[in-house]
Design a protein around this nucleic acid. Structure first.
Length: 580
DNA sequence: GCCGTTTTCGGCCCGACTGTTTTCAGTCG
């Protein structure tokens, strides 16, 4: 046995395939070959089973849709070595910095190739310098405008990253809709794109409008405050980049096309491709103006019409990722997704006792205003000294305080809880005696993020074995755009939770949205309940539930799959069973 | 590179806007 057994995950395979696709594009390969790699990358990322274990079990990778003989062989090589010859050869041919240029808006594979081959540019810095010196406009197919665009794009790239939190984009969405509404009060306005699909982060914003005066809307749009750069300004489509770096697209269509346009503009691209292919097979053509048989529009005014004409039930935006939703829609088997109104209470919240901003009573009042019937107070426990975590004595005092407040409430209940720390060895940092007297125990990892996958997984599984353990808090510890999840085998955790009968949290904090949708779906399939909690540290943060619900819906969860859609008596019964 | 109730070869979603062109390629979503 060697000391360092390294294996590579589906995620690594996806990364390699994407890199190959980028390089192939620049190398002027067959676009459909490029697409095959892109599709395979997406497929691998969403695949439930790890390729490595599939291979070990002797399963045939070509059974996975979009994976043929060639790609299956490459996957085998990648999971063993982390790379593959095809990638290495392309990397020899094309330097890494060239790929980075591909990410700039306005630059695609053809121009990047020209810049690289004719000017020898291999980094953003070199590109900017070449543009500054006027070398770019001398190239075939490029002019002064291209050069100017490149300089702006490089500056914007340096200033801002790629994507922003969905929650962070919300004020911009509201502001843009407001500007457009004022310009043309009769316009029908909708936000589409990944924002409408409730993705955790968004790369740009897509606004759709129905209006008889498209020019009025377009003019107001490109002239609005905060526009740094107008990238396109047409009669039905415009595109701007805001000062903050975010790109916003506006599309205007006629009423008869609204549904088709909304569907098209909502995406995802992969979903659109799959639906259009279905239309094609039925002898129809789907575009943003409608669904057509020859010249005749057969649907398009509403999304429901379009789906119906394609013999599909309505697909909620959150499910439109080409992840099996089309097959299910054909069979009428799509889930009835959980909604905010189904939530009866929040099971993870903090007060001033640890690091929260509001008292228990204030938190309870705010939770009640959300329409909830219960709230679990789960302050931090003693190991987390920076958050003024509670020891056993303070927990007992808090239990008494909660009893006293509950005595004054008639239609609302505060549950006694704790967010206990999972220690290095998988024990919990509060004694079983005290845990046994609480209504709910949320347990979380707050330190030692760098353990190996095996160690971290074992640690958390041991914590779950504690008889008073109810919910695993923010199971992977990810912070969006900031911190990767720690190494942990979530499918194993899910299997263990199924055995043990305990729950996983979907933390609704927009920075976390942890558990990821993919694992929500896996948990659901194995009968593990998900608790959608805000982890509120102030009364305002109860509003974060909407983000958690969005992620839950992306994870195909129905009301019955979510712990805190249960009434209080049902909840108590479940907790009792967990301890039984 | 994948895929097949029209095909094992020849297809592979579809259209708007821009810039550099004189009729269209490139890019984007």
């Amino acid at each position: 046995m060697t000391a360092n057994i390294v294996s590579y995950s589906n995620k690594d395979v996806a990364t390699v395939f994407d890199a190959i696709a980028d390089l192939l594009e620049i190398d002027d390969a067959n676009p459909f070959r490029v697409r095959a790699y892109r599709n395979a990358s997406r497929t691998m990322e969403n695949l439930d089973d790890e390729a490595l274990s599939m291979i070990e079990q002797g399963r045939d990778l070509t059974e996975v849709p979009g994976i043929g003989k060639e790609l299956a062989a490459k996957i085998e090589t990648i999971v063993a070595t982390g790379t593959v010859k095809a990638l290495e050869e392309l990397q020899q041919k094309i330097p890494a910095g060239v790929v980075e240029m591909l990410r700039l808006p306005g630059l695609g594979p053809k121009k990047v190739k020209t810049l690289y081959q004719d000017l020898g540019v291999t980094s953003l810095e070199q590109l900017d310098a070449a543009a500054a010196e006027g070398k770019v406009q001398a190239l075939p197919g490029m002019g002064a405008r291209t050069e100017e665009q490149i300089r702006k794009a490089v500056a914007a790239r340096v200033a801002t990253g790629d994507r922003i939190l969905r929650a962070e984009a919300t004020p911009t969405v509201e502001r843009v809709l407001d500007v457009l509404k004022q310009a043309e009060p009769r316009a029908k306005l909708t936000v589409a794109g990944s924002y409408r699909r409730s993705r955790d982060t968004v790369g740009d914003l897509d606004i759709l409008a129905v209006s008889k005066k498209p020019e009025t809307l377009m003019d107001a749009f490109v002239a609005m405050d905060g526009v740094a750069d107008v990238q396109a300004h047409g009669s039905t489509k415009s595109s701007v980049r805001l000062n903050a770096g975010l790109q916003v697209d506006l599309r205007v269509v006629a009423r008869a096309s609204f549904g088709a346009a909304l569907h098209y503009f909502t995406g995802s691209q992969a979903h659109n491709v799959a639906v259009r292919r279905r239309a094609q097979k039925m002898g129809l053509k789907l575009n943003e103006y409608g669904l057509y048989r020859g010249e005749k529009q057969v649907a398009g005014a509403t999304e429901i019409d379009v789906f119906e004409a394609l013999e599909l039930t309505y697909v909620e935006p959150e499910l439109r990722e080409d992840a099996g939703e089309i097959d299910q829609a054909e069979e009428g088997g799509l889930p009835k997704l959980v909604a905010q109104k189904d939530i009866k209470g929040d099971l993870h919240a903090h007060s001033t006792a640890s690091d929260g901003r509001n008292s228990i009573r204030e938190m309870a009042t705010a939770a009640r205003e959300q329409g909830y019937t219960y709230l679990a107070m789960t302050d931090h426990s003693k190991r987390l000294t920076v958050a003024n975590g509670l020891d056993e004595g303070r927990i007992e005092a808090q239990m008494e305080e909660i009893d006293a407040i509950n005595a004054t409430l008639d239609d609302f209940t505060i549950l006694k809880g704790i967010e206990t720390d999972i220690m290095d060895d998988g024990s919990l940092d509060i004694s079983d005696d005290v845990l046994s007297r609480l209504d709910i125990v949320v347990a979380s990892v707050h330190h030692r993020f760098k353990l190996s996958r095996e160690e971290q997984t074992e640690r958390v599984m041991r914590a779950m074995d504690n008889p008073y353990f109810n919910v695993l808090g923010h199971p992977t510890g990810r912070i969006l755009l900031e911190r990767e999840p720690y190494e942990i085998d979530i499918p194993r955790i899910i299997a263990h939770a199924a055995e043990r009968g305990c729950c996983l949290e979907l933390n609704a904090n927009p920075l976390r949205l942890d558990l990821h949708e993919k694992y929500c779906r896996q948990a659901m399939e194995q009968g593990v309940l998900i608790s959608v909690n805000t982890d509120a540290h102030s009364t305002q943060q109860f509003d974060n539930m909407v983000h958690g619900i969005g992620q839950a819906r992306r994870g195909w969860l129905e009301k019955k799959h979510v712990l805190n859609t249960r009434s209080l008596p049902q909840l108590r019964k479940l907790f009792k069973a967990m301890r039984g």
